[in-house]
Design a protein around this nucleic acid. Structure first.
Length: 465
RNA sequence: UCCCCUGUAGCUCAGUCGGUAGAGCAGCGGACUGUUAAUCCGCCUGUCACAGGUUCGAGUCCUGUCGGGGGAGCCA
């Protein structure tokens, strides 16, 4: 008779008691008892907690295999799930067979039965998902991705795939990665000018820094769309909040104004946070206890309270009249510094705040110019700890205003003909925003370094694995 | 890219005033135990990041390179 293979998350549940089953996973630790059995803790990634196995000495391979199990070994274990007589777990599996699939030499296996620093774990990026913290992070990250799709699907947004290779420099700013099939070695030796007509696309191409402009084309046809994919910035940024390759969610909706976009952003974030609390309880308890004390209360309070709203002009007034000392001066027309944003979220509002109506001079050309002529319909959602988590705006739908702004930004209109067509033919008000996935994961988990919330972080000088 | 900090055993770190290295954990051996960060006893472990320099003598002081961290800028 074939024994049911079940996941450890299910085997640990009270209602699994009485089942005869099989589990498959990796040994975390083993403790021997001279009472004639060993305890083996096994994890299969389905939950933070391990399943305790009681392996009796009667097993045929007890002496030569079971007692030699160490952290990292892969095993298939069959037995009976019983109520655990000891504290620490509801259930335990009394093994009738322990099969070792792969050994992990304890002399050379890097992960030990102890806490490792996140810096060290980054060197073992291929093994770190086997740790408690990275496993929990990846389950929460998965939940957030699922919530993103659920939320937009339920609100009538179509998942749209915008290109990763692009010829347009979306925001006229930010270093981009080049995409080429030219032989750079040969090119360097030849010393001649680059002939793009010989390149794959006949022109210079790059990895996308945003799917927004392409997203707008589909929003002005399908109504509501969102993109969700990898995004690339070749900025030489060395911070705990920046990656060269990260994932971004960008909803775009026709007939939305700035207020609609703000409401969407707030509902969206609250939905993600709620789902994490409801579906990742064990992992969230872990973060609350081991990573950032109080992160659960923080998230709960964000869900319960409406987000603070402030215009840029109001924020400047608050910063100018507050008692705090800043390294950078505050004045209308300059961009807010990290220290300013931190003051607003951590001291003034004490929670997430949406800042709106920034000066047009510090925002990109595509944001809609307001009636005052000095500001644009932009919004940034700032959260304590992480800073800007969402940036968005109502888009400029008036052709003449848009082309005027492009001229100010010294952009070549010829490169944006297709984008301008959206305003030439059936233009409509529309709005959207971008959410950095990793920053959302950081906020929910309390992880301080963005490199620890993505499986294989890409940063300047680092593309291992 | 800039500023600051840092690099010593498999891991986390100590190493005083310059006199060629030590602890905990892990591992291994033993004891003990329905254990759960198990506990107790014993044993093993080093290109002190790398390259120069000062000095009778450098883990320690100086210079450079590389790696890591924190902060800033840019942003998501």
């Amino acid at each position: 008779m074939k024994t049911d293979w079940i996941r450890i998350v299910d085997a640990r549940a009270q209602d699994a008691v009485g089942k005869r089953c099989e589990i498959r996973g990796w040994v975390r630790t083993r403790r021997d008892s001279k009472g004639g059995f060993s305890f083996i803790e096994v994890n299969d990634g389905s939950s933070l907690g391990n399943l305790q196995i009681v392996a009796p000495a009667e097993l045929a391979n007890y002496a030569d295999e079971v007692q030699k199990l160490t952290a990292g070994c892969s095993v298939v274990i069959a037995g009976d799930l019983l109520e655990s007589p000891a504290k620490g777990q509801d259930t335990e599996l009394h093994a009738t067979s322990v099969r070792v699939l792969g050994w992990a030499d304890p002399d050379t296996y890097p992960l030990q039965k102890k806490r490792h620093s996140f810096e060290k774990l980054r060197e073992w990026a291929h093994l770190r998902p086997r740790t408690n913290t990275l496993g929990a992070v990846m389950r929460v990250r998965n939940q957030i991705c699922q919530s993103i799709h659920d939320f937009f699907h339920e609100n009538g947004f179509l998942y749209t795939h915008t290109p990763i290779i692009t010829a347009s420099d979306c925001e006229g700013a930010g270093e981009m990665f080049r995409v080429t099939s030219l032989d750079l070695e040969m090119l360097a030796k030849s010393g001649g000018p680059v002939k793009y007509e010989y390149d794959f696309f006949d022109k210079p191409t790059f990895l996308t820094v945003s799917g927004q402009l392409e997203g707008e084309t589909y929003a002005t046809a399908l109504g509501r769309i969102y993109t969700f994919g990898p995004t690339f910035r070749a900025e030489n940024s060395n911070t705990s909040r920046h990656l060269a390759e990260f994932w971004m969610v960008e909803p775009e909706a026709a007939f939305f104004d700035l207020a609609d976009a703000m409401k969407l952003a707030e509902d969206f974030l609250k939905r993600i946070f709620t789902d994490c609390l409801n579906h990742c309880d064990e992992d969230m308890q872990f973060f609350n206890k081991m990573i950032q004390k109080g992160v659960l209360d923080q998230i709960r309070s964000v869900i319960e309270r409406p987000f603070g709203h402030m215009t840029y002009t109001e924020a400047i007034k608050v910063l100018e009249t507050c008692d705090a000392k800043f390294d950078y001066p505050v004045s209308w027309g300059t961009d807010l510094q990290a220290e300013h944003e931190r003051y607003l979220t951590e001291h003034h509002v004490k929670g997430p705040v949406i800042l709106t109506d920034y000066p047009s001079s510090i925002k990109p050309f595509y944001m809609r110019v307001s009636d005052d002529g000095r500001t644009v319909a932009a919004m940034d959602v700032l959260v304590p700890g992480v800073g800007e988590i969402i940036g968005g705006s109502q888009r400029e739908e008036r052709l003449d205003v848009l082309t005027g702004r492009m001229e100010e930004a010294r952009l070549d209109k010829a490169d944006y003909g297709w984008y301008l067509d959206l305003r030439r033919f059936g233009t409509v008000p529309h709005a959207g925003f971008g959410l950095g996935l990793e920053r959302a994961v950081q906020y929910v988990t309390g992880m301080t370094n963005i490199r620890d919330v993505i499986p294989f972080p890409r940063t300047p000088g680092n593309a291992e694995f």
